[in-house]
Amino acid sequence: MKESVLSFACEGQPLVGILAEPDGTPAEVGVLIIVGGPQYRAGSHRQFTLMARHLAANGFAALRFDYRSMGDSPGETRDFLAVDADIKSAIDALLAARPTLKRVALWGLCDAASAALLYLESTGDTRVAGVALLNPWVRSAASLAQTHVKHYYWQRLRQKEFWLKLLKGGVGAKALRGLGSNLQLACGAGKASDSRSFQDRMAAGLRGFAGPSLLVLSGDDYTAREFSGCAASAPAWAGLLERPTLALHELPTADHTFSASSDHDAQCRICLEWLRTRCLATNP
C-alpha cells in the first residue's frame, strides 16, 4: 500500500487528508473515515491510521481527513452537527482524485458515526455505497441517566454490601440524591422527544438509506449502551436494527475506541468483510 497527502477545499477553507491505497487498482468503492471530535485524523492510539492502512493493504482506498477547525485544517470551531459540507467536500475530493472509484462508504466512530447519519439525512447523497457505524453517539441527559440506572445503580442495588452500608450510614446523602436524580431523568427518557432532535435525525438518515449498513457495538462502553437503549425505546428507531440491510456485530470485551489490539483487529476484519460482501455486491 501507499499513502499520499490529499488537500482540498471546503467553502473556501483548505482541508488536509491522508489517502491510503493499494499499489494496484483499488476496489470500486472507497472508504471515507470521518473523524469524531475533538481529535484529528490519526485517532486515539492511531486507530484511524491503522484502519486506513489495513483497508489499503486489502484493496480499498481509504481517506481520513481533518474537518474544519481540527488538526491541520483551519476554520471556526465546529462539532459533528455542522460537518455536512466537510463530508461532501471529502467525498468530492476522493472521487475526483481517483476516478476509478464509483462510490464511497462512510465509516465513523462515536459522534463521527452520528455525523455520517446526519449527512445522509440532510443530503441523501447517492454516491454513498454504505455506512459503517461504531458506537454511535446519541447522548442526552435522559439517555445518560437511563444508562447509569440500568448498568450501574441496578447492579449496586442488588449487592448486599450496598444495603449494609446504607443501614450503617456508609452511603452518603449525596449518593442517594444522585440515584434519585438519575431515576427522575431516566423516567423521562424517550418521552416527548423533539422530532427534529439530532437523535431522531440520525434515525431518519438510516431509515431513508437503502444501502448496506454496519453497526459495531462495544461491550465495555457506556456510549454503546446508551445507543442500544435509545434504539430500543425511542419511536424514531423502531425496527431499524432489525432491517435486513443492517449487519450488527457486538464485541463483548471492546472499549469505546477498541484500544486492545485484539478488539481493533476484530473490528477491522468485520469492516473489511462487510465492504467485500455487502458494499461491493450492491455497487451499481
Rank of each mutant, 00 (worst) to 15 (best):
I18K: 13
A113H: 04
G130R: 03
T77A: 14
F8W: 12
S140V: 06
Q47C: 12
D86A: 00
F198T: 04
G75T: 06
C271M: 14
G30T: 02
A129C: 03
D194R: 08
R53H: 06
Q159S: 13
A90N: 02
S7H: 11
L117D: 01
A132Y: 00
Y119G: 07
S181P: 00
Y67Q: 08
L167A: 15
L272A: 06
L117S: 04
S213F: 13
V29E: 12
C268S: 07
R127A: 03
D221E: 01
R276T: 09
S197L: 11
G180L: 14
T100G: 10
R156E: 15
S114C: 03
A57M: 08
P26M: 02
L55P: 11
G75K: 06
P22C: 07
D220A: 13
A141W: 00
Y67R: 11
C187F: 13
A62E: 04
N58E: 08
R98I: 14
H264K: 05
T277C: 03
E226N: 01
T245D: 13
E3I: 06
F162A: 05
A27G: 10
V128H: 03
E76I: 00
E273M: 01
N135P: 07
K150Q: 14
S193N: 13
L280G: 01
S262M: 09
R276V: 05
S114E: 01
W274Y: 08
Q155C: 01
L241P: 11
P235E: 15
F60R: 03
N283P: 02
L109W: 02
H264W: 11
V31K: 02
D263M: 12
R276F: 02
R158C: 15
H151G: 00
E226F: 01
C110T: 03
W107P: 06
P14W: 13
A52E: 10
W154Y: 10
G190F: 02
A281F: 11
G178H: 07
A142P: 01
G75S: 05
W163R: 09
Q146F: 10
Y119A: 06
G17P: 05
T25W: 04
H264S: 08
S114P: 01
V31H: 05
L15S: 10
G30Y: 01
A132N: 00
W237N: 11
P235K: 12
L280N: 05
A20E: 08
T253R: 15
F80S: 12
T223G: 05
R225C: 02
Q159T: 09
L101Y: 09
P284C: 10
